[in-house]
Design a binder for these strands. Sequence first.
DNA 1: CTTCTTGCAAATAATTTGCACTCCA
DNA 2: TGGAGTGCAAATTATTTGCAAGAAG
Lengths: 135, 135
Amino acid sequence: MKNTRQRAAILRVLDESAEPLSAEEVHSRLHGEEPSLALSTVYRNLERFCSENLLHRDTFGDGVVRYSPARRHGHYLICTGCDARVRIDGCPLAALEEGLERDTGFSIESHSLTLYGKCPRCMEREKHPEKSGEK
Amino acid sequence: MKNTRQRAAILRVLDESAEPLSAEEVHSRLHGEEPSLALSTVYRNLERFCSENLLHRDTFGDGVVRYSPARRHGHYLICTGCDARVRIDGCPLAALEEGLERDTGFSIESHSLTLYGKCPRCMEREKHPEKSGEK
DNA sequence: CTTCTTGCAAATAATTTGCACTCCA
DNA sequence: TGGAGTGCAAATTATTTGCAAGAAG
């Protein structure tokens, strides 16, 4: 894989971001530094990096694919009321993966886990009998 | 929520399917029975059912959203070589969820877990020094 | 050099929306 | 009936592809 300015920039943006980013987001964050970077270049490289296992793909329930450095992959708890995202530390799947490799013969490379629920604030809002005119 | 012929059909197709289905797939499976059913109606109702927690949304890494009955939700192990999907029985997240509710104050409603790896056949294929002309 | 990459524009795919008409409750 | 729900077509959004020109090894 050749080392191009564009590739370095794409990886750097993802490294610097605390959150997974979509192709659009990567592209727009690089607009200052690489004004002529094509969106299609971003897409192509993000996918390339995924298949080299440099990046990890995340889709938070919606159809938008987001990417993050494979090393720093994490899990999120997402509020179904306000879309707030809370990062979850640690991940208890090592044991599950081991068992699965034994049972299925697969060699497991990665996983993606996302939880959904209502944040405290949205729970409150739901309880109150529709004060303001929502719905 | 009103009870329409279309809604019943959409839910039934999903109940009868062993696998999560995309909007397109639901629509095409109903083409015989409901020839005039609009794809947009399918989309609208799938989303509606999700927000009523009748359905569960799954996106297997690609950008396509798939739906399955909330009661029968499951997890999958997907081969990154040939896209084969293996359903995983059981799910060890109850303990994690409990801990998270305590820590974050969220009320957890659902989760989505997908694992990726190479199936035995694709592992073989990778090992052999590119017999046939696959780049 | 020569092959892998990029940029651009055009093509696809996936999903959403506006609106007039229909059909449950 | 009256409003929620539907169908259709058009609009968006997300992503992919073809190809000529550019840069890395």
